[in-house]
Amino acid sequence: MVIAVASGKGGTGKTTIAVNLALTLERDMPVQLLDCDVEEPNAHLFLHPLLDVSEKVALPVPVIDQSKCNGCGRCSEICAFNAIIAIGTHVMVFPELCHGCGGCSRFCPVSAISEEPREIGVVESGRAGQIEFVQGRVNVGNPLAPPVVRAVKSKIDARQVKVVIIDAPPGTSCPVVASLKDSDFCVLVTEPTPFGLNDLVLAIDVVKELDIPFGVVINRSGLGNKDLLTYCRREKVPVLLEIPFDRRYAACYARGGRLVEEFPELKEAFWGLWRRIRALATTGQTEFRGPS
């Protein structure tokens, strides 16, 4: 089962939920954790994985053979991203704008364009305790995160692993969609503030568009106001777990600690979260009864 942990708003506790859920389950079943927040991956700060494999993620970008190019300008007509521009007989390539679609080389009438890989990021994998860990990192200055996300997700090992947990980036645009796509369930983490509610509603639109069953975790409950709970009740959005605001939890997070190892009440709470996810994802029922 692939469980994505997402949120519209940043800083609501996606990584906290993803990491602590993985730590809760690791002794009882094979777990894989994928950090798909490739712009700012943070799960490693809590899990300290031993990363023994590192693979480059590259996009194929065009290289012009000037001896063959006749300056017809077809490539720059084809390119939808302004990554290749013909000025007179001179053709210029802007690799950082290239999406790697291959259009220019495919349609060049004189076969003057070949492709070479351009590194845009890296995928690292290894283990943290029993957890199989994979993370992506987009190179600083490179705008294109989704190909790195897809490279991380290509490491999903559905046959060996029972639970795959995806730590998604914040927001609602393409890197989020790339992270969430094809998940079996999505946990949306939010907080009881107007920002948290506003961005939760946007995130719910995304998971509905992608047709993924979902539920909500309310972090720092007790702060802010009641509008979030009222919304969830009215819209019949399942609230999977509420984690109260507690300075001790905040301090544990700040230094990179693990909530479920320091606070037994939270370990219990994360087991409850897992049971509810499993019930909602597999049967569609809202309550699961029986042993874990």
Binding site: T15, E40, L45, P143, A145, Y253, R255, G256
Partner: peptide
């Protein structure tokens, strides 16, 4: 926006000052 990707790159080009807000956590 959060992150370091495409909307951030579009936001940062040509500004006079980027004020970076952080918090005292490992992340």
């Amino acid at each position: 926006p959060p992150g370091i990707g495409c909307p951030v790159i579009s936001s940062i080009s040509g500004v006079d000052l980027a004020l970076i807000v952080t918090e005292p956590t490992v992340a």
